[in-house]
Simulated assay, not measured.
Amino acid sequence: MPQYRSHHYRSYDGTELHYRVLGPPDSGLPPLVCLAGGPARDAAYLGDLGGLDADRRLIVPDSRGTGDSPAAEDPAAYAFPRLAEDLEALRAHLGLERFALLAHSAAAATAQAYAAAHPDRLSRLVLVSPGSRLQGELPDDARQIFESRAHEEWWPDASVAVQRLAETGDLDEVRDLLHRAAPLAYGHWDEPQRAHAATEGGQLNPVPRAGFWQSVDDRARETLLTALRDVTCPVLVVTGDRDALSGMRAGELVAASFPHAQLRPLHLVGHYPWIDDPDRFRPLLDTFLRTGEAPLS
């Protein structure tokens, strides 16, 4: 596990929320704030993002009801637009006029809500394996990616698990089924992927997860998407061609929502590119964070 320093900040409603800081305290590079997806999965699964903390500080908050942050008294506080308000409180606490933001998977919705509300606060925005629910389209290419791997030995059991996940609400069974279905989220199913997947069951937070998409109707969604056209900072969207959770088409839709987005698909990479191919993921992000441009290979 990466070494980190533990901190707290006070959010807009007075709640003390937790965040971790990884990386060298005396780094001359701007820090990167990193949001975990799930939704509402403990942020520990981000690790050090494939060694991205070697030269810069990573600031990793625990959203409400996850990790070391307390549960919300009002379930509405779990909705992603409210989590974006927590992020603004964290920015103020850190004393950052502008900052670089990375969001993985479902947290891309939180990041987009923040960008829409505070476009002048972002210097860079990185969205890794995003879904496109905000864009109003749920592409089916993730299923196609999954089906294309039917020849792999883990596939039959994973396929059964995926079907049963849609039919059960028992948390213990959900944890077991998620572990059986885990290979579909990775580009390979080797020891690093197995070790990473083994942590998921203990990192689930069902109540915050259930509240993540609440109170966001079509009108609010369209207003948010309109506001994204005013986001002028460089945006990088990273997808993997073996991501059978989000697929690749979702990333295309998300990138098209911004005026200055660069889309970088990675070959033989799944939902967690820093696990599948850290040696490509890390320099891609490092170059983008330094220059605002993402190399093509």
Results as ranks from 00 to 15, higher is better:
residue 225 L to Y: 01
residue 221 R to D: 12
residue 216 V to W: 04
residue 231 V to Y: 14
residue 244 A to I: 03
residue 221 R to K: 06
residue 218 D to E: 14
residue 234 P to G: 07
residue 217 D to N: 13
residue 236 L to D: 10
residue 244 A to Q: 01
residue 237 V to Y: 08
residue 216 V to Q: 13
residue 229 R to Q: 12
residue 232 T to P: 00
residue 216 V to H: 10
residue 233 C to N: 11
residue 237 V to Q: 08
residue 232 T to Q: 06
residue 233 C to K: 11
residue 227 A to I: 09
residue 240 G to M: 04
residue 236 L to F: 06
residue 231 V to W: 13
residue 239 T to D: 03
residue 234 P to A: 07
residue 227 A to F: 05
residue 219 R to D: 15
residue 216 V to M: 10
residue 234 P to D: 08
residue 219 R to S: 10
residue 223 T to E: 15
residue 219 R to Y: 12
residue 219 R to K: 08
residue 227 A to G: 03
residue 224 L to G: 05
residue 222 E to C: 07
residue 217 D to V: 04
residue 222 E to T: 15
residue 244 A to L: 02
residue 234 P to I: 05
residue 236 L to C: 11
residue 224 L to F: 04
residue 232 T to I: 04
residue 224 L to W: 03
residue 228 L to K: 12
residue 243 D to T: 00
residue 230 D to N: 15
residue 219 R to N: 04
residue 231 V to P: 07
residue 241 D to V: 03
residue 228 L to H: 06
residue 227 A to L: 07
residue 222 E to G: 05
residue 215 S to C: 08
residue 226 T to Y: 05
residue 221 R to W: 04
residue 221 R to A: 13
residue 242 R to F: 00
residue 228 L to C: 07
residue 236 L to G: 12
residue 220 A to E: 15
residue 230 D to R: 15
residue 216 V to S: 06
residue 241 D to F: 02
residue 233 C to F: 10
residue 229 R to W: 05
residue 226 T to P: 00
residue 222 E to N: 14
residue 215 S to R: 14
residue 237 V to E: 07
residue 220 A to D: 09
residue 242 R to K: 10
residue 218 D to T: 14
residue 230 D to P: 04
residue 230 D to Q: 11
residue 220 A to L: 14
residue 243 D to N: 01
residue 226 T to N: 06
residue 217 D to L: 09
residue 235 V to A: 08
residue 232 T to R: 13
residue 226 T to S: 09
residue 232 T to K: 09
residue 224 L to K: 09
residue 244 A to S: 13
residue 236 L to S: 11
residue 239 T to P: 01
residue 231 V to T: 07
residue 216 V to P: 03
residue 216 V to L: 05
residue 218 D to N: 14
residue 221 R to I: 13
residue 225 L to K: 10
residue 238 V to L: 00
residue 237 V to H: 11
residue 215 S to H: 15
residue 241 D to T: 01
residue 234 P to Q: 09
residue 243 D to M: 02
residue 223 T to C: 13
residue 218 D to F: 10
residue 243 D to G: 02
residue 242 R to Y: 01
residue 216 V to N: 03
residue 229 R to Y: 04
residue 222 E to I: 14
residue 234 P to R: 12
residue 233 C to Q: 13
